[in-house]
Simulated assay, not measured.
Amino acid sequence: MEEGIKNLDSQYLTETGIIKSYKIDYNSAELHPMGGIVITTYINNDKDLYIKDTINEDYVSKKLEIGGSVVSKKLSDLLKGE
């Protein structure tokens, strides 16, 4: 999850950009009904700016990987410049 945030376009992840800070909320971990674990990352200490990532285990390599992400509407709008 952290790698995904750090790989965002540099215009977003700077002191003057949209994403100034992020916090992975490990206490938010919950089982996804379709499999995997969902963990929430909050952006800029704002509970309305979040990314929920589903973490799955690859069946072949047995490594954990991001299976999918949900971005809050407020964060999506900010990233689009709305």
Rank of each mutant, 00 (worst) to 15 (best):
I37S: 02
D58I: 03
S10G: 14
V71I: 15
L13Y: 14
H32A: 14
Y42M: 04
L8Q: 13
V60T: 08
T14K: 05
E65G: 05
I66G: 01
Y42F: 15
I37E: 06
L31K: 15
L79K: 06
I51N: 02
K20E: 13
G67S: 06
D46M: 05
Y50K: 01
D58G: 01
L31S: 13
K6Y: 05
K47Q: 12
T41C: 03
I37C: 06
E3S: 14
K47D: 11
M34W: 03
K47G: 01
G17L: 08
Y26V: 13
D77K: 04
D48V: 01
T41Q: 00
L8R: 10
I66L: 08
L79A: 10
S28E: 03
N7C: 09
I39F: 07
E15I: 06
I55N: 05
E30F: 02
K20T: 15
S10P: 13
N7V: 06
I43E: 01
K63C: 03
V60P: 00
I66K: 00
L8Y: 15
E65H: 10
T40E: 04
E82Y: 11
Q11W: 03
K63D: 13
P33K: 12
E30D: 04
Q11A: 12
Y26H: 10
G81H: 06
T41Y: 00
E57K: 13
P33H: 08
M1Q: 08
E57G: 02
N7A: 15
I18F: 09
I5R: 01
G81T: 12
G35P: 06
G81S: 08
T54M: 09
L31A: 13
D46K: 00
I39H: 06
K20F: 09
P33C: 02
S69C: 08
T54A: 06
I39K: 05
G35L: 09
T16H: 09
G4D: 12
Y22S: 09
Y42T: 08
K52W: 00
Q11F: 08
T16I: 10
L49H: 02
N45H: 12
K52S: 14
Y59P: 11
N56S: 06
I66H: 00
K23D: 15
T54P: 04
D53M: 09
E82G: 12
T14H: 00
I24G: 08
E30H: 07
T40Q: 05
D25I: 13
L78N: 13
D46P: 07
L79N: 06
G36L: 10
T16M: 07
G36F: 10
G17R: 04
S69R: 11
G4P: 04
S61D: 12
S10Q: 14
Q11R: 15
I55L: 15
N44D: 10
I5E: 01
E15F: 06
M34N: 14
L79G: 08
D9A: 13
S21T: 15
G67N: 01
L31T: 12
Y50S: 03
T40N: 07
I66E: 02
D58M: 01
T16K: 14
L31P: 05
D9C: 11
K63G: 02
S28F: 07
K73T: 11
E15R: 12
L13C: 09
L8G: 09
I24H: 03
Y22H: 09
S28P: 07
I51T: 12
N44G: 11
I5S: 02
I51H: 02
